[in-house]
């Protein structure tokens, strides 16, 4: 199992509010990258009182080499699903880092250079379940981030989810990927940060 890309150290933060499925997403994404694609991944998340109801955060450090320091220092990619999260963590983005927001929830971005997709709206309107927003996001990541390989992510979902939930999740994943592809067709060439 050889990872498709050589990654030095890629730092990704998923952030938003409790209930948006951010912690689950972090787990699924991390497991997919680590177990299906063979990267070294260290995933941490915010614990404590703040994790319930308030802000929610999941961090991943991804590398082709063993990871020493497990926490992100300068983010390569920030995913923000709430205005607060976007405001709070934008300053942790490193120069040339990318920002991806749910533009149905984040109305004011601190920069003009960002990717925006309405994950929550898509989940609500196209799938009828707002909880699937995180899987729509995962689908988008699979298109936007070169080393997030769609096939590996789907396989990860198959092994971790019960058949009962699998179909709807895969549908959400597919939706996210299609929408991202439609809006940002040439994204892969833009990556310089790893």
């Amino acid at each position: 199992m050889k990872p498709p890309y050589e990654i030095q150290r890629f730092e990704l933060r998923l952030s938003g509010l409790g209930g948006q499925g951010i912690l689950t997403l972090g787990k699924v994404l991390g497991a997919g990258l680590a177990l299906e694609e063979g990267y070294f991944v260290a995933q941490t998340q915010s614990y404590g009182p703040e994790a319930r109801g308030g802000a929610s955060r999941s961090d991943l450090v991804i590398s082709s080499q063993p990871i020493s320091y497990p926490k992100p220092e300068q983010l390569d990619l920030l995913v923000a699903l709430s205005q607060e999260a976007c405001n709070q963590y934008y300053r942790h983005l490193k120069q040339g880092g990318y920002l991806l927001v749910d533009d149905s929830l984040v109305k004011q971005t601190p920069t003009n250079i960002y990717w925006g997709l309405p994950f929550t709206t898509l989940a609500k309107e196209k799938l009828g379940m707002v909880q699937a927003a995180n899987m729509v996001l995962l689908g988008a990541l699979a298109h936007l981030v070169p080393f997030v390989v769609p096939r590996a992510m789907k396989k990860g979902l198959e092994t971790s989810l019960s058949p009962k939930f699998l179909e709807s999740n895969l549908k959400a994943f597919q939706l996210g990927m299609t929408q991202a592809k439609k809006k940002y067709p040439n994204v892969q060439t833009q990556w310089t940060s790893f």
């Binding site: 972090g26 787990k27 991390g30 497991a31 680590a34 177990l35 070294f40 991944v41 260290a42 995933q43 941490t44 998340q45 614990y47 990871i67 497990p70 926490k71």
Partner: peptide
């Protein structure tokens, strides 16, 4: 410690 206990890795 909390970091080691709460970090996910392969």
């Amino acid at each position: 410690d909390e970091i080691t206990a709460h970090t996910r890795e392969k």
